[in-house]
Each structure stands twice: as C-alpha cells, then as structure tokens.
Design a protein around this nucleic acid. Structure first.
Lengths: 205, 205, 205, 205
DNA sequence: TATGAATGAGAATTCATTCAT
DNA sequence: TATGAATGAATTCTCATTCAT
C-alpha cells in the first residue's frame, strides 16, 4: 500500500485523538477526575495506555484537551443563540436548554462535559492546573451569563417567580448540577415530565 | 504515677475516638470516601496517622464506625417520629425534615452523614465492605419508607401534585442528594426561603 | 518501531517472570516468607519493586506462582518414578532421593523449593492463603506417600531398622527438613559421605 | 501497708523481670527474633507492652538480657561438668546431653535457649547487635568445645564411627539444631527412643 | 511501678509517567 | 504509530519506641 499523504495522516491522527478524548470524557464524567486512571481511559478507548501518552503529555492534558475539544463541538453557545432567535417564552427557553443539557448530542458528549465540569467545580481548585481552572470558570460564567437574561425576562413577564434573580439562578444551577453528577441515564426516561417538575421550582403560578 | 482508673480511661478513649470520627465524617463528606486519605483525617483531627490506627483497624472501619456512631446520635428517626406526632401538614413535615437534613445538629454531623452516604451510594458497591453497604442501603431505605407516606398523604389532600408517588419521591430525593453533595454551607443562608423554592417542585398550586 | 510480535513478547515476558520467580524462591528460602520483603526480591532479581507488581498482583501471588512454577520444573515425581524403575535397593533409593533434594538442579531451584515449603510448614497456617496452604500440604503428602513404601520395603528386607514405619519416616523427614532450613551449601561438599552418615540412623546393621 | 524495704523492692523487681524474660524466651523461640513483636512478649507475660520498656530499653536488650539470664540459670556447663564426672561412656554422655537439650528444665527455659540461639545463628549477623552476636558465637563455641573431647574419646574407644571428628560433630550439631528449630514438643514423646535413633548416625556398629 | 495513648519510620501496593522495541 | 515493560512517588497499614498519667 502506498503511504498515506500528509493530510490523510493528520486526519487519522485526529480521529485517534478524538477516540481517546471521547472515551476520556465519559470516564471522567462517570468517575470524577481524580478517580479516573489512565488505564481506564485506555480501556474505554480500546487502546493501550502507552498510546494515550503518545497523543497527550499528561493526564491533566488529556482532561484539558478533551474538555476544550468537546466544548468546541458541543456548541452550547450556538444552541443558546438559536433559542434566543426563537419565539419561545423565557421559561420555555430555559426548559429547552435544560433538556439539551441532559441530552447526549450527536457526538454524545453533551452531558459528559457538564458532568466533568461539575466534578471539577466541586474539587479543590488548588489541585487543578490553571488552564483547567480557567476552562471550568469560563464554563460556569457562560451559563450564568446566558441564563441570567432569560431569568430576568421571565420574572419581568411574570412567568417566573419574583425574588433575587441571581440567587434564583444559583439555586437552579446548583440543582441541575447536582442531578448531573448523578447518573443522568435515569433522567433521560420521561425527561420532559421530569424537567417540567424541576421547572416548577421557578415557575410562577 | 498510677494509671487512670477504668472509667476515666474509657471516657478519654471515647472522646478521642469521637474527635477522630467527627473529623473523619467531615473529610469523607467533603472529599468522598475514596479520595479521603487517612492523613487527611489525622490532620483534621489534629493527631498523627498512627493514632487513627490505634483506635481503628482500617480506613473502612473508620468509615463504618464513624457512620454508625453519627447515625446513632443523629436520631433522624426521632425527628421523623416527632414530626409525625405534630399537627403539621404533610408538606410542612417534608419541609421541616428537609431543613433538618441541611442543619448541623448540636453534634454538628447531621448533614455530613447524608453527604457521606450520598458519596457511597454513587460509588461502586463492589468496592465496599458488606457492613458499609448495608448501612448505606438501610439509610436509603429509611428515607424512602419515612417519606413515602407523607408524599402519598399530601397527594391525597391535594397539597402535593398528582402523579406516580414513587417517581415523585425519587426526583425529590435525587435533587436533595445532589445539593448535599455540593457545599451545604451556602444552603444554610436563608435556608427557609431556599427550601421553599425546592418544595415548589412538588407543591400543588 | 513496531512492537514485538505476540510470540516474542510472550517469551520475553516469561523470561522476566522466571527471573523474578527464581530470585523470589532464593530469597524466600533464605529468609522465610514473612521476613522476605518485595524489595529484597526485586533487588535479587535486579529489577524495581514496581516491576514485580507488573508481573504479580501481590506478594502472596509471587510466592504461589514461584512455588508452582518451580515444582513443575523440578519434577521430583519424575525422579521418584525413575528411582522406582531402577534396580536399586530401597535404602539406596532413599539415599538417591535425599541427594537429589540437596542438589541444585539444572534450573537451580531444587532445594529452594524444599526450604520454602519448610518455612511455610513451620508458620501458622492461618496466615496463609488457601492455595499456598494446599501446595504445602500436597507437597508434604507427596513426600510421605512416596517414601513410605520404600521405608516399609526396606524394613521387610531387613535393610532398615524395625519399628513404627510412620514414626521412622517422620523422624527422617524432620531431620532432613531441619537441615535444609539451614544453609544447604555446606551439605553439598562431600555430600555423599554426609548423606551416608544421615542414613545410618535408619540402616540396620 | 508499710512500704516495702529496699531488698523486697529489688526482689519484686527481679521477679517481674524474670517473668518477662521467661515469656520473651518462649516467644522468641517459637517465632524467631525478627517476627516476635513486643506486644507478643507482653501478652505472654501478662503485662502491658509499656512495662516491658520500663524494665528494658529496647527489644534487642530484652533479647540480650533474656538470653544471658537464661544461660546463667541453665547451667549447661554444670550439666557437662557432672556428666564428665560420671562413669558413663562418651556416647552415653552425648546421649544424656542431647536429652538435656530437649528437656524443659525446672525453669523451663532449657530448650528455648537453644532454639533462640538457632534462630539467631541462621539470621544475618549484620542485623544483630554485637553483644548478641558474641553471645551466640560463644554459645556455639561452648557446645563445640564441650562435645569435641567426647566425640574424640568415643572414636578412640571405637564406640563412635571413625572419620574427621570436627566434621562429624558439625553434622551432629546441625541435625540437632535443625530439629530444635522445629516444634520440640513432638520430640519429647518417646524422647529416649528418638534420641537413640539420632545417635545411630555416629554409633559404630 | 504500671498502663495505654501517641508518634513516626518502614513495608506492601497502586498508578502516572517514561522508555525500549 | 503502537505496545507494554519499567520506574518511583504516594498511600495504607504495622510496630518499636516514647510519654503522660
């Protein structure tokens, strides 16, 4: 066989990396960062642990690159953008966003990201490299900044209960985060009804 | 000098053990069981790691004894009993129970128990000694059995929304658990209002 | 470079394992099981202690596998078989067997096995995993069952002194075992004469 | 009660020490020096481990003092002296001495000494304090010097087989030592017959 | 004198990381 | 690129020794 050309090689390389990153995200999400061993990632990806170090220089880098890569593909920002363009009410937008969070997207990493970030947010920031800490912080920031206007608008329109908007948002995010840390599989059954119940917390009657 | 007499010795011994168990519960609650190192417990308790092994034979036993000890003092069952004796409505009882869960009791271990059990419930049961697994299971069972009648009654009286009682309870417990896994300190500020918001999930309007 | 193929790899792996097992046997034989530290085995084998755990899951397994492996190669049973086929007198057979026990075979583990088993036989069986206990028991059984007929036959032919055969065998084995526990190097000089002296114990005159 | 006077105090002190030393010897003999834990000695003596350190400054000192103390009381030298005074034949003297070695004397430490010395002789001399090493060496020397004349005399009288006297003695002592390392209880049953069998090794026919 | 609490050095084992093939 | 061998730092647990009472 003729050797692959540069492009083909690069593409093959990226596929391999993606394969590992996807596996890493799942294992990180399921077990938490600290309890995830390189061997677990390698096994999930179906490669040797040595290969992981061929593509990444350390466990921290696996984590960082995997998160960054997944966030790029995940395009929560795009989802937000589309939701905002739509004619839905604020509360309905929040619901759609929540459902999106639980859903496994086409690349099946959507909720994994959220869960990994959750694990990280709960752990001691001193145990974390700066770049990862930044990613986590930025991610949290992003959700707050994106959701805050929806909450505010909903309160204005009377759809959402009154009170300190920031605190309300914080409660809502804590609840969602806590649930995510759990096994999200269960939440995917009858997701619509379950999310409706969650939203009752903030829905004005 | 003559050694202390039996009683003095036994009392001192129990105080030391309690000191370690209290520290252990806090560290287990904050970090999860697997990530808690004996050195962390020793440091929190202000003793050497060797002393921990003077009072307990293994990390697992520290965990088991600490949980058992805390559960005994905690007397959730008693709280439930008193609540049930009271004239409060089912929903109000659930609220009081929830508040109790977040509260640090006089011995300051109340919510730690809940959190440790949460960590354990999320981890693989195969990594757990039988006696600890039993404790966790019994604890979960207890909450379900105690709360189920309140939910059912509340639905009957129209105070709580209709629907599959078991599923409703499950959602409620998952949410509470998820929150607990988080830093519960935050929840203690304005706890009453926050719990009110949580309860809106199940409150009929 | 491409990784080694299956066969090459497997062979290298087995060589390494053998290297460690041989070292382990020697150190176990010299120091007894409990007093043997993994670091001593690693040092004797010229590898890091980590590598020992790459090939074996625990110290107990090093012991078990090493013994099993050595017993397989040692083929005492085969020696017995050949001796029995021969035209030698019972006493002569016992002598040859005794010499074989002291001898370092081609793989140089023969007497180490005996010595390790001796150490184990003397230690508390409760401190021993079942599979190791079985190995030790089976080994002891084997010697008794193989030698008993020779002793009986020798007594019948008048070559061996009269008396309780079982007790005689027990004395003989205790003596041999006790010697083995000692440094067997010394016994290898003038072995023939020394064994002759030992055999005088049971030789009829 | 009136306080004890100096002498009584000193006597009580010595009794306590003796109690511990006797226990120590037994445990050292049964388990070997390295595997004997202070707690085992304390338990055997029925005192707390702290008390052991009240009378001795270290484990090594317990060993050294216990051996020295036992050797003094044991008076093997006296036994030898008495045997030599007697009219017995050399071989018979060797037999009596051997029996004495197996026997538990009135203070029940006789064979324990021998066994502890055996354990020590087998272990690495670098792990041993000088004074203990000297004790062991002196002890070995003593047996050799005391028995050599008996062997030589026996060979001269034709009672003992010919050959290098030193080597013969060495074989004999190795065998006895090896047996001692084992459980000597078994040897005490029918001791006379068993020792007769042992002696056949060196008996001329 | 006597007890047991307390400490810390050392040993088994795990796992991130590097290296030879 | 790919594998798994090899290393050593970190963690649990044991035990000699010291100390307070």
């Amino acid at each position: 066989m003729a050797p692959l050309n540069e492009n083909q090689l690069e593409q093959k390389r990226m596929e391999r990396k993606a394969q590992i990153m996807k596996a890493a995200l799942k294992v990180f999400a399921d077990n938490g960062v600290k309890l995830t061993k390189i061997s677990m990632i390698a096994k999930e990806a179906g490669v040797s642990h040595g290969l992981v170090y061929h593509y990444f220089t350390s466990k921290d880098e696996v984590l960082y690159e995997s998160l960054e890569w997944a966030m790029e593909r995940n395009r929560v920002d795009q989802v937000f953008h589309e939701l905002n363009e739509s004619q839905l009410s604020p509360l309905e937008k929040i619901k759609q966003f929540t459902i999106f969070g639980f859903t496994q997207g086409e690349l099946e990493v959507s909720s994994d990201i959220f869960r990994v970030v959750q694990h990280l947010a709960k752990s001691n920031e001193n145990d974390m490299p700066d770049n990862i800490y930044d990613l986590v912080k930025k991610s949290g920031q992003f959700y707050i900044e994106s959701l805050f206007p929806l909450f505010a608008e909903g309160q204005k329109s009377g759809e959402i209960i009154q009170g300190d908007t920031e605190e309300l948002l914080e409660i809502y995010l804590t609840v969602i985060s806590g649930i995510m840390a759990d096994d999200p599989t269960w939440w995917r059954e009858n997701m619509d009804q379950k999310v409706d119940i969650l939203l009752r917390m903030i829905t004005a009657r």
